[in-house]
């Protein structure tokens, strides 16, 4: 299968949650608090895709290079990362449109007054340069700097998790689970730790 088809197929898979929301929106089937459903679902998926993006390197390191090439993990990561960005944009729109009716002054006020919104907004803003430079052409053009730029995904994911922790009223189970997964994925980037793991 050539890379274009891989990308199309994977993109379709990644858009299933959004298509499902669109379908339920159209059929008025988003529950008692439809806007909350839109906001929470898009936010959840943005975070899931960020964590999925971060899992590619550890998986790559554990697989033999041949398998990694065969599965085109770098393409997979690009689609996952762009999906995270798309869901984050949908998340912002669901909030900005339904809560603030697209008012820019109200958005600025919210960002300045509510720390959890500031965290989420920072995460989304930092994602923009990564989404823009996700193509192979940009990767070539930026060379070494591309690597360092895209390491921004670590603080972005952490900001997104803090955003989640800060908005929860009492039950921190879900956001702390995300934090745990994030920590494990970060630890699995440690080369010597990985060596020990694979030698067993």
């Amino acid at each position: 299968m050539n890379s274009l088809w891989r990308i199309v197929l994977l993109s379709l898979l990644c858009s299933i949650p959004a298509l499902d929301l669109g379908w339920r929106f159209y059929h008025f089937d988003l529950g008692a608090n439809p806007v909350e459903t839109l906001q929470h679902t898009t936010g959840d998926w943005a975070l899931y895709f960020l964590l999925a993006t971060l899992s590619i390197t550890p998986i790559n390191n554990l697989l033999r290079p041949r398998w990694s090439n065969f599965l085109a993990m770098h393409l997979t990561r690009r689609v996952l990362g762009l999906s995270a960005f798309c869901y984050a944009v949908l998340h912002l729109l669901a909030y900005w449109f339904f809560d603030l009716e697209l008012s820019l002054p109200l958005l600025v006020e919210d960002v300045l007054e509510r720390p959890f919104i500031l965290m989420g907004m920072l995460a989304l803003i930092l994602l923009i340069p990564l989404a823009m430079t996700s193509t192979a052409a940009w990767q070539r053009r930026l060379r070494q700097r591309w690597q360092s730029l895209h390491k921004l995904v670590y603080p972005i994911t952490l900001l997104a998790i803090i955003h989640y922790v800060m908005l929860v009223k009492a039950d921190l189970f879900q956001p702390l689970l995300m934090l745990l997964i994030f920590s494990v994925l970060m630890l699995l980037r440690n080369k010597s730790l990985l060596k020990n793991l694979s030698q067993r």
Partner: peptide, 14 residues
């Protein structure tokens, strides 16, 4: 953490 100026009636979008 959030404003209380407005509310969303269940079933409504705005």
């Amino acid at each position: 953490r959030w404003s209380q100026a407005k509310e969303r009636p269940l079933g409504s979008f705005f």
